[in-house]
Simulated scan of single mutants.
Amino acid sequence: MIPIEERTGTMIGEIEVAAIEHKPVMSKEVVEALHLRAGLTIVDATIGTGAHAQKILKEIAPDGRLIGIDRDEDSLALTKERLKDFHDRVSLVHADFRNIDKVLAELRIKKIDGILFDLGISSYQLDSQERGFSFRYDAPLDMRMDRTSQILAYDLVNNLTEKEISDILWAFGEERWHSRIARHLIRQRNQSPLSTTGQLKDAVLRAMPHGVTRRQRIHPATRTFQ
Rank of each mutant, 00 (worst) to 15 (best):
L194C: 14
R147I: 15
R65V: 15
M145H: 03
I181F: 07
D155E: 08
H210R: 15
G68L: 07
L83C: 02
E175C: 05
Q226F: 01
R183H: 05
R136Y: 08
Q150Y: 01
I42M: 02
M208Y: 14
P209Q: 12
D44Y: 09
I151C: 08
L36I: 11
I15K: 14
I47Q: 02
S195I: 15
S91K: 11
S179W: 11
A45R: 09
H94F: 07
L185H: 00
D142W: 07
G173I: 14
I121G: 00
T46R: 04
F97Y: 13
D138M: 11
S75D: 05
R206Y: 02
S91A: 13
F86L: 07
E174V: 07
H52N: 08
G50N: 10
P3M: 04
N158L: 13
A33M: 10
E73Y: 14
I218E: 13
S134R: 12
A38N: 15
M1Y: 10
I100A: 00
E32M: 08
A45L: 12
I115S: 05
Q129A: 05
S134H: 09
I109K: 01
H184T: 08
L194M: 14
L107C: 06
I100D: 00
E29C: 02
G132W: 08
A221H: 13
E162W: 07
E81L: 15
L104P: 05
I115R: 06
P62M: 07
I60H: 04
L119A: 02
G39E: 11
D101A: 09
